[in-house]
């Protein structure tokens, strides 16, 4: 009887700890898992296919990238992407020659307005690519930014 009692207590403790751990782990607010393999990809097409399931994109004039022609400081490069096509689902920003090319991906609900603006780091002169997913298709645009001082090293 004592054995059973001991077993019961142990089980209760282990079970309790597991339940507490489970309660701490999920962050209800963040649904999607961070796409680790897409952010570890070293090439643009690899990153795109891991993130969006495909790297086939059509160049589109409906996407405007606003970024400086010459960035004096690669650590802070302002980038603004405007997509005027309907049903924009996501906008991803890529710096072609960065050690980690995929910089950010923004997903919208059904009321997205096709606009994001942020500041990115660039290791050296390269194209900034914006990939827009709209109506299930991928569209892209690019703009070259010349970097005088890189922002990815020391």
């Amino acid at each position: 009887m004592t054995m059973k009692r001991r077993t019961f207590i142990t089980n209760a403790l282990v079970g309790g700890a597991a339940a507490a751990g489970a309660a701490l782990l999920p962050r209800a607010a963040f649904s999607a898992d961070w796409p680790k393999d897409a952010f570890e990809a070293k090439s643009v097409s690899d990153a795109l296919s891991k993130l969006l399931g495909s790297s086939d994109q059509t160049e589109s004039a409906d996407i405007t990238i606003k970024a400086p022609d010459i960035a004096e400081n690669g650590a802070v490069v302002p980038v603004q992407v405007t997509a005027t096509m309907p049903n924009v689902e996501s906008i991803s920003i890529i710096a072609e020659k960065n050690p980690v090319p995929l910089i950010a991906s923004f997903q919208f609900g059904d009321n997205g307005a096709g606009f994001v603006s942020t500041r990115i780091k660039m290791g050296k002169t390269s194209n900034v690519i914006a990939v827009v997913k709209a109506d299930g298709k991928l569209f892209s645009a690019k703009k070259e930014v010349k970097v005088t001082i890189g922002g990815c090293g020391g």
Partner: peptide, 8 residues
């Protein structure tokens, strides 16, 4: 949004 360390 998902970000990498490439954001300033």
């Amino acid at each position: 949004a998902q970000w990498s360390g490439g954001i300033s």
